[in-house]
């Protein structure tokens, strides 16, 4: 866990400081630049008719952007495994909700008006 990353205590060091990896500024700017590129890409892709592939492509780009934000801006890449479990299970529950509801609604014809 995070404590294992600690270096030796200094004499005036009370307890442990939170384990933090010196978040590199370069990583933040690289991620920001990539997010900008993907934003332009998603807008550009929406101007072209790709038939049924427009939405999957837009969602794939959005997922990529979200993963970059989660891993680097939200520091999950350096987070303890317990945090990973919470994050992965929350998306798992979201998946369960989507799959079960869609298996009903998207497989039959509903019409309200």
């Amino acid at each position: 866990m995070a404590q294992s990353h600690h270096t030796t205590d200094h004499s005036d060091h009370v307890g442990h400081a939170p384990a933090h990896h010196e978040a590199s500024l370069t990583a933040y700017f690289v991620v920001f630049f990539a997010l900008m590129v993907f934003t332009v890409l998603t807008v550009a892709a929406s101007r072209v008719n790709l038939g049924v592939w427009n939405t999957p492509l837009a969602l794939a780009i959005a997922v990529t952007k979200a993963v970059m934000v989660i891993l680097w801006f939200m520091h999950v890449i350096h987070s303890p495994r317990m945090t990973w479990i919470v994050i992965i299970s929350s998306f798992l529950w979201l998946g369960v909700m989507f799959v079960l509801i869609f298996s009903d609604y998207l497989t039959r014809a509903f019409n309200i008006f």
């Binding site: 998603t42 592939w53 939405t55 837009a58 979200a66 989660i70």
Partner: peptide, 21 residues
């Protein structure tokens, strides 16, 4: 950042739906 991620999904889904799809 979470609020930012929500927008990352809202933007294509509310602004960029292609008429062909």
């Amino acid at each position: 950042h979470f609020v930012d991620i929500v927008w990352i999904f809202l933007f294509p889904l509310l602004y960029l739906i292609h008429g062909g799809a």
